[in-house]
Design a protein around this nucleic acid. Structure first.
Length: 430
RNA sequence: UCCGCAGUAGCUCAGUGGUAGAGCAAUCGGCUGUUAACCGAUCGGUCGCAAGUUCGAAUCUUGCCUGCGGAGCCA
């Protein structure tokens, strides 16, 4: 019976064959342990010389690290295995023999591992992170599909900068200039006017010279946009969504979280609602906690965000930022024109901002003034303004950075481990 | 772009002016429950690159390159 490691539990006491790679092995004169992996999981194969016979035992001792093979064996429950099952090997067939696998069982440095990212992905730790990433993506589709959202794919090649501030990747589009998308938001607003509630999931590109554990040049964003949703409705979706993905990972990735040594008690607390503080309150907090030099109108840096996040055990919304700090499309608070109806969601444990969102300006006059004030090219935003001309409605949306979310939930230090092939300031290989 | 740290065997590192070292990996041998297994042996070097100081430089000086951590900016 051909099966996979994940499904081996259905075949206790039976003989099965698994296509696998040898992750590692240990052996003595009369017993050998093969650490096998097949992508679905990890299992230990046991070869006892007296039972397996001379020839099979010799073959088992000779298999090299990361060789591919078909392993046949008897499935047995075993309390000594963290996985719960072991395979008593009765047959081995080498598919392809590997020689001098570079990633040895001992420790390695970051540069070396990143140069061998295509092989590093095979490790237990990377396997666990990728499974958690996948679970977050799965739970994202589940959450939005259950609530009647339609997935819409905004373009990746664009002709203009949605937000003037960040640096964009420049390319050619036949005879025109083009840029790689740094946000699909404006297009998602158009989609929300067509389909009501929409979300996107795709790559974004930022040509920023950022070198921190929270930054990637190419990263993936989930951007929901909802017609008829105000600021308050928007925050509710965000906290329910984030709570949903955390609870889904807790439920479906127990082995992976354990493998990563994640403190799950911290994740269990992540349930809606999340605490909220305004920019003004955050400023007051910072003044009382060693950041006296921050003035009203200054943006918060990473140390400020971390200090604020540390006084909560859930993600915290920072709302109502000064208008001058935020992009042109955010709706002003009608009772206080100098702040906008926006919120950043800061993850606990120093993982930084994972969501930025706001209610969008739906008034034609105000939006065209803002475009002028920000010195944006009016022609490029003509279509965007037209959304306010033909049946404009209040609407809101947000963007969640996938890799920062994966890093936080998995408890890994650096976002470079949360995407299969990270693009960093000094890395385009492999 | 700025600040700080690092670059020595395939990998992880020690070596601070006087013969280039250890552990892991690889190879050979030993070991019946290993969990980064263990024990013995063998193999393994352009000390990031260039110039300088010195009788003598991995070690001191200068420049450059590469990487790491952080800041700014952002998700």
């Amino acid at each position: 019976m051909k099966t996979t490691i994940a499904e081996v539990g259905q075949f206790v006491g039976q003989e099965v064959t698994i296509g696998a790679w040898l992750a590692n092995k240990r052996s003595s004169g009369k017993i050998a342990f093969l650490q096998l992996r097949d992508g679905t999981g990890f299992i230990q194969g046991v070869v006892v010389k007296s039972e397996a016979g001379e020839e099979l035992f010799k073959a088992a001792k000779a298999v090299t690290q990361e060789s591919s093979l078909y392993v046949t064996g008897l499935v047995q429950e075993d309390s000594r295995s963290p996985f719960g099952y072991e395979l008593t090997v009765t047959g081995l067939e080498i598919i392809s023999e590997a020689a001098d696998y570079p990633i040895t069982p001992k420790e390695h440095g970051t540069e070396f591992l990143m140069d061998h990212r295509h092989l590093w992905l095979r490790s237990r730790r990377q396997h666990a992170v990728m499974k958690i990433r996948n679970e977050i993506i799965r739970a994202t589709y589940e959450f939005f599909n259950e609530r009647g959202f339609v997935k819409v794919d905004p373009p990746i090649l664009t002709g203009s900068a949605p937000e003037g501030t960040s640096e964009l990747f420049h390319t050619r589009y036949f005879d025109e200039d083009a840029y790689l998308s740094q946000s699909g938001q404006l297009y998602m607003e158009a989609a929300a006017m067509a389909l009501g509630k929409v979300f996107s999931f795709g790559p974004t590109f930022r040509a920023e010279k950022s070198k921190t554990r929270r930054h990637l040049i190419e990263f993936w964003m989930i951007e929901p946009e909802m017609a008829f949703y105000n600021f308050e409705d928007n925050l509710k979706v965000q906290e329910e969504y984030v709570a949903h993905i955390v609870q889904s990972v807790l439920k479906n990735c127990q082995l992976e979280l354990e493998r990563l040594g994640r403190d799950t008690s911290k994740l269990e607390q992540i349930k809606a609602p999340f605490p909220r503080i305004t920019y003004d309150e955050a400023l007051e907090f910072l003044h009382k906690n060693g950041f006296e030099d921050v003035k009203w109108g200054d943006d918060f840096g990473a140390p400020h965000e971390t200090a604020i996040a540390q006084s909560y055990d859930k993600p915290v919304f920072i709302t109502h930022y000064p208008t001058s700090l935020k992009p042109f499309y955010m709706q002003p608070d009608e009772s206080r024109e100098e702040v906008v109806l926006c919120a950043d969601l800061i993850a606990p444990e120093g993982y930084g901002e994972i969501i930025g969102g706001s209610e969008r300006i739906h008034d034609f006059q105000l939006l065209s003034e803002r475009i002028k004030e920000h010195n944006l090219e009016p022609e490029a935003y003509e279509w965007y303004l037209e959304l306010r001309k033909y049946g404009s409605v209040p609407h809101s949306g947000f963007g969640l950075g996938l890799e920062r979310t994966v890093a936080w939930i998995s408890g890994v230090e650096h976002v470079r481990e949360t995407i299969p092939f990270p693009r960093l300031l000094n890395r385009l290989y492999p």
